[in-house]
């Protein structure tokens, strides 16, 4: 019974932390963007502008929740739910610290990949159900982009799997006791970072919602809390990708002096900061450039990494 209670408290704690951090991230991101653009960012509401989150939440909740009459209603409502559910489900396998985490799956890494590949339905269906040309174009772009980047996202992680010899994320963290995988797997790390940004649809690769060409892309027709779910889904996605990068390449909770949980949070936060820095500094590529980059640069790089890692592991083992 106490074990069950412990498991449930774990689940609820992680949910609460992820959600509040995702909300907080909308403020952190704006402040950091401001800092990097010689501005202040939101600093009016409450201390340091922290209550901006509450103001935004009230604004989103009190807006009209509009389902366009020309839309495919059931799918239109379903789409934002999918992204929230899939990204949160993927959090189930993230090993936060020893003893903290929802489930300890043998195929944790594959589960994460599966959930992130299901998340694209949210964007595609949302874009299609809106029955609006900009949304549809956003949906198309999302589908093509996700397919292309998913191909090498999975492959780039196979080097890590080879080195750790397991799909279990806790085993992978444990295998980094001596050396973080970002050093032997530098190519895999770079390719996974690029794929992760594309999967989270963050700024250099936010083609599905490119404001200056597609209005708001797939969520043009969304308002109120449905838009809020997309918003939260995006931030949870950012946290998820950051947490996965920390788990797979930066030794997860491992680190001296500080408690494991602190290490995990610290590393995750640094990676999130890096994501925001990317948003602050890099321009958006053209669409054909994006696709060419995935297939002609990143995929060969991943395959080379896979080949070299395989050869080294084979030579080292025998």
């Amino acid at each position: 019974m106490s074990e069950l209670a412990l498991a449930w408290s774990n689940v609820i704690l992680i949910l609460a932390v992820v959600f509040s951090f995702a909300a907080l991230l909308s403020w952190i991101e704006r402040r950091l963007l401001g800092v990097w653009q010689d501005r202040y960012g939101p600093n009016r509401v409450g201390p340091f502008g922290l209550l901006q989150i509450a103001a935004d939440a009230i604004k989103l909740l009190s807006k009209e929740d509009w389902v366009p009459p020309f839309s495919e209603k059931a799918l239109f409502v379903l789409a934002p739910v999918i992204i929230a559910v899939t990204t949160l489900l993927a959090f189930a396998v993230v090993p936060v610290a020893p003893g903290i985490g929802v489930v300890d799956l043998n195929i944790g890494l594959l589960f994460f990949l599966a959930m992130s590949s299901l998340g694209v339905y949210s964007i595609v269906l949302g874009g299609w159900a809106s029955n609006n040309k900009y949304s549809l174009l956003g949906g198309f772009r999302a589908a093509a982009q996700m397919l292309s980047y998913e191909v090498f996202m999975g492959l780039s992680l196979m080097g890590v799997v080879m080195l750790a010899g397991s799909f279990n994320l806790r085993d992978i963290v444990a295998a980094q006791e001596d050396l973080w995988f970002c050093i032997p797997q530098i190519l895999g790390f770079i390719t996974f970072t690029v794929a992760g940004i594309a999967e989270a649809r963050r700024l250099p690769f936010d083609l599905p919602e490119a404001e200056n060409e597609l209005v708001a892309g797939f969520h043009t027709e969304y308002s109120s809390m449905k838009f809020g779910l997309f918003f939260i889904g995006e931030y949870v996605g950012v946290i998820l990708i950051s947490a996965m990068m920390v788990t797979l390449f930066f030794g997860g909770w491992l680190g001296p002096l500080l408690p494991p949980l602190m290490w995990f949070l610290l590393k995750t936060f640094i990676v999130i900061g890096f994501f925001i820095l990317l948003r602050a500094s890099l321009p958006r590529p053209r669409y054909d450039q994006l696709m060419a980059y995935a297939w002609k640069v990143m995929l060969p790089l991943t395959l080379v990494n896979l080949l070299v890692t395989g050869a080294i592991v084979l030579a080292w083992k025998s």
């Binding site: 195929i107 599966a114 590949s117 299901l118 694209v120 339905y121 397919l147 998913e150």
Partner: peptide, 17 residues
């Protein structure tokens, strides 16, 4: 996992596309 990643996650996205 492969069923979800490859069939549900990739091939069906192409179909929907």
């Amino acid at each position: 996992a492969l069923e979800v990643i490859i069939y549900a996650g990739a091939i069906m996205v192409l179909f929907v596309f």
